[in-house]
Every structure is written in structure tokens, then in C-alpha cells.
């Protein structure tokens, strides 16, 4: 237990110092991007947020399958807390996207494929928690939630490919751009480095939230166990 506490403190300070470092780098040192100007800086929050969202829901996907396979409630707990953190990041993704869209596109929101499928992911996982709350039997809850979790995560590849499959207002991916079989992000190194740094920091932050939430979830279940035991 003490070891876990230590890891949490490391992750906590890692995210605090990392975020401070990135903010200083992005706002005080980085040059201004030529076509968009200052609004481009929200990219350093928007892009890491979408990567954290992808990762969080990939964890949901993997641990939902693991639960259905092994029927170990711990896997379900991990899927649940990752979905919670993922939902927060997804909300942040929609909000930062809207803030970025206003000065560049001229609108907060359009119903194009990228934005609509992202909103869909958000709504699916709102439903996921409603489903969890509505089932009182713990095993049944885990089973149903795992199935919905797996189906919901299938939206992730659709979101990612939406800008290539359909005509959208949202631009194609900068970071994962592939030219003649080779990865070639269309952004100068000087702007790319802080982006990679912020991605790492946000992923550390995700891990911190995940572990913290997992600990509290575990204790809650232990407490529930004790309550049911003492009642009889």
C-alpha cells in the first residue's frame, strides 16, 4: 500500500511540474504559428486530450474483454474508472475544440463527421454510467457494462478515420500524417517538441487520475463488502 502511495505522489508532482513547464514553454518561449497566430496554442491542450481520450477508452476496451474472459471484478473496476477519466477528457476535448473552432473556423460547433462521432462517444459513455447505476447486481452490472464498453469503444477508430472517410470541416491529422508510407507530421520541429512534451504530461496526468480513482473504488467495494457482512 505504501508503495502505491509513493507512486501516486510521484505522478501528482510529475503532472504539476510538467504542466507548469509546458505552460511556460508554450506561452513564453514558443514562436507564433504563422497562419493561425495565437489561437494555435490551444493545440497543446486539444491534441494531448484526444490522445488521452483514445488511451482511456482503449483501456476500457481491453479490460472489458478481460473481464468477460476471466470474470474477475478487478478488471471491471479498472474499466469503470478508466471510462470515468476518459469521459472527463472527452468533455475537455469537445470544449477545447469549440474554443479553437471559434477564432479559426468561425464557429463553435458544426455537425461534421469528426465532431458528431466524438459527441457520440461522449453520449455512449454517459449511457454507460446510467446503465451501471441502474443495475443493482454487481456481477450483472459488470457483464452488461463490459458489453456496452466494448461496443462504445468501436467508435474510436471511426472518429480517427472520419476526416479521411468523409468530407469534414475538421482538418486531417497533423501528428499522424503519413506520406509515402513514412510518418511525417506536418509541423515544424520547434512546434512539435512542446506538443510531444504536453502529450507525455497529459498521459502522466491520466495515469495519476486512473490510479487515484482505482484506489478509492477499491476501498468503496471493500466497505460495501463489510456493510453486507455486518448486516447478517
Amino acid at each position: 500500500m505504501d508503495k502505491m502511495k509513493k507512486i501516486i505522489i510521484y505522478l501528482e508532482w510529475g503532472s504539476i511540474l510538467g504542466l507548469t513547464f509546458c505552460v511556460i514553454w508554450i506561452f513564453l518561449i514558443l514562436p507564433i504559428e504563422s497562419s493561425q497566430g495565437f489561437p494555435q496554442k490551444i493545440m497543446y491542450l486539444h491534441v494531448p486530450t484526444f490522445i488521452a481520450t483514445y488511451l482511456a477508452f482503449f483501456v476500457v476496451f481491453a479490460f472489458s474483454i478481460a473481464y468477460l474472459w476471466k470474470r474477475d471484478l478487478m478488471f471491471d473496476q479498472i474499466a469503470k474508472v478508466s471510462a470515468e477519466v476518459g469521459l472527463i477528457f472527452c468533455a475537455l476535448l469537445l470544449v477545447t475544440g469549440a474554443i479553437w473552432g471559434r477564432p479559426t473556423w468561425g464557429t463553435y460547433w458544426v455537425w461534421d463527421a469528426r465532431l458528431t462521432t466524438t459527441l457520440l462517444l461522449f453520449l455512449i459513455f454517459m449511457g454507460y454510467f446510467l446503465l451501471r447505476m441502474s443495475v443493482s447486481d454487481r456481477d450483472k452490472e459488470a457483464r452488461l457494462a463490459s458489453v456496452l464498453g466494448i461496443i462504445g469503444c468501436l467508435d474510436i477508430p471511426i472518429i480517427h478515420k472520419s476526416v479521411e472517410w468523409w468530407r469534414t470541416l475538421h482538418q486531417p491529422s497533423t501528428l499522424f500524417k503519413v506520406e509515402s508510407g513514412k510518418a511525417s507530421p506536418s509541423i515544424p520541429q520547434e512546434l512539435l517538441n512542446p506538443l510531444l512534451a504536453s502529450i507525455i504530461v497529459i498521459l502522466v496526468f491520466y495515469l495519476y487520475l486512473l490510479i487515484l480513482r482505482f484506489q478509492s473504488e477499491k476501498r468503496k467495494e471493500e466497505l460495501n463488502q463489510l456493510i453486507t457482512e455486518t448486516q447478517f
Binding site: P31, I32, E33, S34, S35, Q36, G37, F38, Q40, T104, W105, G106, T107, V110, L169, Q171, P172, S173, T174, K177, S186, I187, P188, E190, L191
Partner: peptide, 24 residues
């Protein structure tokens, strides 16, 4: 009725950073 700008996924910076920043 509505005019939206579709911005590109390509990002660039001026070679003279300090000057472009000040001008901006």
C-alpha cells in the same frame, strides 16, 4: 448565410521568430 474557414493541418513558423512575435 454562414462563412466558415477550413484551416489546413499544416503548421509553419516564420524564420525570424522574435520579430514575428513582436509584430503579432
Amino acid at each position: 448565410r454562414q462563412l466558415l474557414v477550413k484551416h489546413s493541418e499544416e503548421y509553419t513558423i516564420e524564420t525570424d521568430h522574435k520579430k514575428s512575435k513582436e509584430e503579432y
